[in-house]
């Protein structure tokens, strides 16, 4: 298994290089000059040239990328064009907020999505199944932005029991943003669980288990669900990556000081190294989570061996 892990990690290197190169190229080709945005309209050509030289933008494209890569290998993500702060510092400030929110959302997704999927499957065709299906449909189809604003309106204004933005109110701060962020993935997990469990419930060994006299709960939760777990875990793993990188809207609506907003601000001002650094860190997290998910397979299904 160790060999497998090492091979996977080595494979991640070209993936990460590809990602940084793509971002570097896309941002360099995007119209809009970071120096002009920073110095404003009245800057003289001499000032623009000086500022360019100061942040290294006067170098050719590939040289800049090579320089960046060499620094990254040494653990240096460079400096923000806008405020000269180390990119690592900027990310360190923003990443925990996003990670905490993503974990909170993930907890909600697992705690609500899996049970509702199982119940939907077990009670197939009943009013409960219909209700849960409608709920999933709503979760899948409503835009995050709109849901967030509705929640803010009802729980922050009509019935003002919850904080509506920022992280300063402890655990309470997480309720609305985590719920908003989770809704979409909840729906996905719930529907996936429903179909997987439905499929498993029709298998022979489930009938055998029931015939042996095992209780219904035990059969559903221990046997049927466990067998359905592999695809569910895969999707949950992918969802975590999406939650980390795709929280921009939730972060904006709920004034959440996370990495999504850092990236949006950086993109607007063409702060290339900040965007590149943030994407790199998110990519590393994504790759790691996926590896972890693959390793979890082995515990869920002893037949799976890594070679």
């Amino acid at each position: 298994m160790y060999a497998y892990v090492i091979r996977r990690l080595l494979w991640a290197i070209p993936v990460l290089i590809g990602i940084t190169f793509t971002i570097h190229t896309v941002l360099s080709l995007t119209p809009g000059d970071p120096v002009r945005i920073m110095l404003g309209e009245t800057a003289t050509e001499a000032q623009i040239e000086a500022a360019r030289a100061e942040i290294g933008l006067d170098r050719p494209f590939l040289e800049r990328y090579g320089f960046y890569l060499a620094n990254v290998v040494r653990g240096d993500l460079g400096e923000s064009y806008r405020n000269k702060r180390a990119v690592a510092e900027e990310i360190r400030d923003a990443l925990p907020a996003t990670a905490q929110l993503a974990v909170a959302a993930l907890v909600l997704i697992v705690l609500l999505g899996i049970p509702s999927g199982v119940m939907s499957a077990v009670y197939r065709g009943t009013w409960l199944d219909a209700t849960l299906n409608i709920l999933s449909l709503v979760g899948l189809s409503m835009p995050v932005f709109w849901i967030g604003l509705l929640l803010i309106y009802f729980f922050g204004f009509t019935w003002p029991v919850l904080p509506i933005g920022g992280m300063r109110d402890g655990l309470a701060s997480f309720v609305l943003p985590a719920f908003t962020l989770a809704l979409n993935s909840y729906a996905m997990i719930s529907r996936l669980t429903r179909s997987e469990v439905l499929e498993t419930l029709g298998e022979d060994y489930i009938r055998t288990a029931r015939a042996k006299g095992l209780g219904f709960n035990v059969v559903v939760w221990r046997h049927a669900l466990k067998a359905s777990f592999i695809p569910i875990i895969t999707v949950i793993g992918l969802q975590f990556g999406l939650l980390m990188g795709g929280a921009v809207l939730t972060e904006t609506v709920f004034s959440w000081p996370g990495i999504g907003r850092l990236m949006v601000d950086a993109i607007m001002t063409r702060d290339l190294l900040v965007v590149q650094g943030a994407v790199l860190v998110l990519a590393i997290i994504f790759v790691t989570v996926n590896l972890a998910v693959d390793l979890i397979y082995a515990f869920l299904d002893p037949r799976i061996r890594f070679a």
């Binding site: 907890v107 909600l108 705690l111 609500l112 899996i114 049970p115 119940m119 029991v161 919850l162 904080p163 300063r168 109110d169 402890g170 655990l171 309470a172 701060s173 997480f174 309720v175 209780g215 219904f216 709960n217 939760w221």
Partner: peptide
């Protein structure tokens, strides 16, 4: 048929605990 609602209940408890944290 008996059902285990434990995960759902746990989530609700978490939400309630969270409500206590609102600051003025």
């Amino acid at each position: 048929m008996r059902w285990s609602f434990r995960p759902t209940v746990l989530a609700l408890v978490l939400v309630l605990v969270a409500l206590l944290g609102v600051t003025m």
